[in-house]
Amino acid sequence: MNVPEGVAMTARTDGPGRGLPRTGGAGVDVGGTKAHMRYPDPRTGEVRSVETRCERYDSLDDLLSDCFRLAGCVPRALVAGVAGRVLPDGDVHVTNRPAWPVFRRAAFAAAHGVDVAVVNDLVATAMGAGELDGNGYRALLPDVPRLGGAARAVVAVGTGVGAAVVDADGAVRSSEAGHVSWQPVTDDEEALLRFVRASAGGPVVTVEQVLGGLAGFGHLYDFLSTRRDAGPGLRERVAERIASGGELGPVLTAAAGAGDGFARELLSLYGGILGQFLRDLLLVSHPEGAEVWLGGSVLQAPGIGELLVSDTPFRERMVCRGAQHADMLGRVPVLLITDRHVAAKGAFARSRSGM
């Protein structure tokens, strides 16, 4: 699928990339907020990247076409890791871009003369995590030794919540685990469930509705605000973020990192729910020997991973001592992916290995 380094060909397409030079395989990560594409320079072979924001486009077709324009070349093969449920024919709807039409893989491929494969963005993240060196992640539980096998559960929290699992033989399986029903455990969580159900409606309250950077943090902030005052400074920052159409996750994680009492209480509630979600995911997907890899903009915010471990019931709820299999869960390492482009790197690696 790759052109030789230093060789530039001209794209033969009637689409927006007409006349641009050809390059080899490219990988793109498309979330609900932004997209990042990696590709080899068509003349030198040097790996380059472009990034853009999803809000600028009316469809995934437009976004990918513009990535080609920004890169100044059209790949011969493209692997797209997309935050959405991928259908058997590769069509996909970006979950947190509901106004976008369904992306039709075959039609886009034909219009641009590109071999296109579409995977869930967490599949791309899981593939990329397996390629990281020690500079791309750090251990959140340094007292728990690494297990050394391939098995892992990969969870990313950004605009939404995504998860994929890697079997012991290295096979990657996608999931829609962020959309499973959330089950409260504590009295505070039961009150949160009633609050979210009343405000959001719908037949179920999902994990994403209480953990995601968009809906989750909005619900947590509104719920906690019924119990205590957020304070004028935080209220103002939240109001500005809402007015601009942005997610509350970055505002509230930054406030928690700075020691804000309201934000720390919110993070404590958040950490318990996240720990419980990981416990459920591990028990369903891996009976023994797995590691947890965490990523996404919410969990990668400065200091948040360490705060989750030190100042919230995150680990307590993940292990759940006294319940079945607590011994196994207590041996599970938790690693935080610090490389923010891991999904694009995973997609890029797959594009260069024959799709």
Rank of each mutant, 00 (worst) to 15 (best):
151 A>H: 05
151 A>T: 08
152 R>D: 04
153 A>F: 08
153 A>H: 10
153 A>G: 09
154 V>F: 06
155 V>N: 00
155 V>L: 04
158 G>I: 08
158 G>Q: 07
159 T>I: 11
160 G>K: 10
161 V>P: 00
161 V>R: 02
162 G>M: 06
163 A>F: 09
163 A>T: 08
164 A>E: 05
165 V>K: 11
165 V>W: 07
165 V>C: 00
167 D>A: 09
167 D>C: 02
167 D>N: 02
167 D>V: 00
169 D>S: 00
171 A>P: 00
172 V>T: 04
172 V>R: 09
174 S>V: 04
176 E>C: 03
176 E>F: 01
177 A>K: 02
178 G>D: 04
179 H>R: 11
181 S>K: 13
182 W>R: 13
182 W>M: 02
182 W>P: 01
183 Q>M: 08
183 Q>T: 15
185 V>I: 10
186 T>A: 05
188 D>K: 15
189 E>F: 06
190 E>Y: 13
191 A>P: 07
193 L>K: 13
194 R>P: 06
195 F>I: 09
198 A>P: 09
199 S>I: 12
200 A>K: 14
200 A>R: 15
201 G>R: 15
203 P>I: 13
203 P>G: 12
203 P>W: 15
203 P>M: 11
205 V>R: 09
208 E>H: 07
208 E>M: 04
212 G>M: 01
213 G>K: 10
216 G>R: 02
217 F>W: 09
218 G>L: 09
219 H>N: 15
219 H>L: 10
219 H>G: 10
221 Y>M: 04
221 Y>W: 15
221 Y>D: 03
223 F>A: 02
224 L>P: 13
225 S>M: 10
226 T>D: 11
226 T>H: 14
226 T>K: 14
227 R>Q: 15
228 R>K: 14
229 D>S: 15
230 A>P: 10
230 A>G: 10
231 G>S: 10
232 P>N: 07
233 G>H: 14
233 G>T: 12
234 L>M: 13
235 R>E: 13
237 R>T: 03
237 R>L: 03
237 R>F: 05
238 V>T: 11
238 V>R: 10
240 E>W: 03
241 R>A: 13
241 R>Y: 05
241 R>T: 14
243 A>Y: 08
244 S>C: 04
244 S>G: 07
244 S>E: 13
244 S>I: 05
245 G>R: 13
246 G>D: 14
248 L>P: 00
249 G>D: 02
249 G>K: 03
250 P>Q: 04
252 L>R: 06
252 L>H: 03
252 L>G: 02
254 A>I: 00
256 A>F: 11
256 A>I: 07
257 G>H: 04
258 A>Y: 08
259 G>C: 00
259 G>H: 07
261 G>Q: 12
263 A>W: 11
263 A>T: 15
264 R>F: 06
265 E>M: 09
265 E>C: 09
267 L>K: 08
270 Y>S: 02
